[in-house]
Design a binder for these strands. Structure first.
Lengths: 314, 314
DNA sequence: AGGGCACCTGCTCATATGAGCAGAACCACC
DNA sequence: GGTGGTTCTGCTCATATGAGCAGGTGCCCT
């Protein structure tokens, strides 16, 4: 295509998309046949001169979703559009909404849903509508918060999802990470705790997020880890955590000793689930999202456009 | 339109614009009739959920051009798109290119074209193609630079436009602003100078830009004015200059004494021209662009999208 | 409860558009 | 300068889409 045709295709596109003229009218205006106009418009599209965006908080990027399914072997992918987003919070909110939508539309409806906790999942729970399902019971799959001011979001998340879904929540009454291995083993052998974990293993579906390995981690905020602990994990190759367990870029446990002191489903147990929905959004989570997808921790990913493109780049 | 329909219209838009499905196929996928799908898509468009942009350096915004013509009474308007622009320089370049295109397409071809000088017009001259016209003579309409290192762009601009247009340039051999009124009067009564100005008055068309009233002004760079001079003009209400003459927001001369020492066409003489093309781009020129358009100094405006929208806001 | 009104739905029909094809124009290479 | 191949052009025809309309539905007010 020569220079002249390129310019003509732009003129034609202006008249077609901005002025709503028919290809025939454009032909008369530019002294071309309408077939030529059609071809010019096709070329303009094909060469990427025409960008069509859907500006809406609920807009998704289906082509990217397809690529994720095909190139990353996911059973399903939900990618929310970043078009018109102004803040990281807004992106997080859009992603949480999309996850809520996905859960609501899920068929068959899971009888038991295993959930982790964190800022993202809390938001998902808030976006779910009352009556999003009937009779969905929820079970926590890893130890919860309790130490700090914002105590209770872990419990609140599970309870909200269950209540709005017309079912009950089963909480895992344990800290996320214990100081001593012996204590952890003692807790896990407790009848109640062991029962909850058993129930978690048998869940029909899992819903979880992932945290970045940096100082904004919920584990630091909750007092389970210190800044120094996280720095050390990063040194060892950690890119983030899933259900409280820190992994490297390949999805392997970074610190087995720490992992042994962490209460809840192990990553291998998590991988046993048939439906494993990860909800991960935001720039800071690109590395951990990559690890989660590569190592097959999730079978379904709900994420934002930028993160999805990052996954497809590598 | 209720919540559900809004969501459906977004789903439909995704399938239509991103997946290239027909409305019929979308209907099957979403369990709607194809007419409903058509209506949803129409609503999505009408409510502004669909944004279509033409990404190309030569892309224009025809709807904005029309509004400028209708709401600001311009004979013509050329508005270049800012979509995908990363730097002010790029915007300036696009606008200059558009001005060059406009000149090239101009019918009837002006026999004599009066031009001012400055960064913008120099760029226009560089964007013109050899042979953009045949037999277009160029005459300078205001005094030129000569004092500083980058001397000669004023002359270079006029000469380039003339040469590429197969005609000759007539330069105005005078400084832009003189220190004393008497000198200015003496220069203007010089046979040659008077002849050039007479020729300028009779030009078929004028092409000029405008400068901002700030320290980046070409008049400071060229040594005709000092920072302090400009500060004073701003205090008196100056928003910028046209052919070396500083105007306020209403297009009136800010400092008559200074104006009397400025060589070239007066603003009233400029306004006599039937075809007066102003080329003005960039954030810093919004105020002066506004003044130029409001006071009818130009009959045709070539500008960028942001500047155009600023003009339409007020 | 009934009548009136606004809105919505599913249709027919006219129009706009894209696929595909035959001939024309162009180019390069003998 | 002919000849084979490639690209381009203007067409026919099938399909996709939008306008407009008749009937239906739900809603509000009496």
């Amino acid at each position: 295509m020569d220079e002249t045709d390129e310019l003509l295709s732009i003129r034609a596109a202006e008249l077609y998309y901005e002025e709503n003229k028919t290809q025939d009218e454009i032909g008369q205006a530019l002294r071309l046949t309408r077939w030529k106009v059609g071809r010019l418009l096709a070329q303009a599209k094909q060469r990427g001169f025409i960008r069509i965006e859907i500006l809406h908080p609920r807009a998704r990027r289906l082509p990217i979703e397809r690529r994720l399914r095909e190139e990353r072997g996911l059973d399903d992918a939900i990618v929310v559009s970043s078009a018109g987003v102004n803040s990281p919070d807004e992106l997080q909110s859009r992603t949480a909404q999309a996850a809520a939508d996905y859960l609501t539309a899920l068929r068959p409806v899971p009888r038991t849903l295993g959930v982790s906790w964190g800022r993202t999942l809390f938001e998902v729970s808030q976006h779910l509508r009352n009556g999003w399902a009937t009779g969905v019971n929820v079970v926590q799959i890893n130890g919860g918060v309790s130490l700090n001011r914002r105590a209770g979001t872990a419990a609140a998340t599970a309870v909200a999802i269950a209540q709005k879904g017309g079912g009950n929540a089963t909480l895992l009454p344990s800290p996320a990470i214990l100081e001593h291995l012996a204590t952890k083993q003692a807790i896990e052998s407790d009848r109640v705790v062991a029962g909850v974990i058993e129930l978690a293993r048998s869940a029909d579906a899992y819903l979880f997020s992932a945290g970045p390995a940096d100082h904004t981690s919920v584990h630091i905020e909750s007092g389970y880890l210190t800044d120094a602990d996280v720095d050390l994990l990063v040194q060892k190759g950690a890119v983030g955590d899933v259900v409280g367990r820190y992994i490297d870029a390949d999805g392997n446990i970074v610190d087995p000793a720490l992992d042994a002191r962490t209460v809840g489903l192990t990553l291998d147990e998590l991988r046993e689930g048939r439906l494993r929905i990860a909800v991960i959004a935001g720039r800071s989570k690109h590395p951990v999202a990559d690890a989660v997808v590569r190592s097959g921790l999730c079978s379904v990913l709900v994420t934002d456009e930028a993160t999805a493109l990052h996954l497809l780049d590598g």
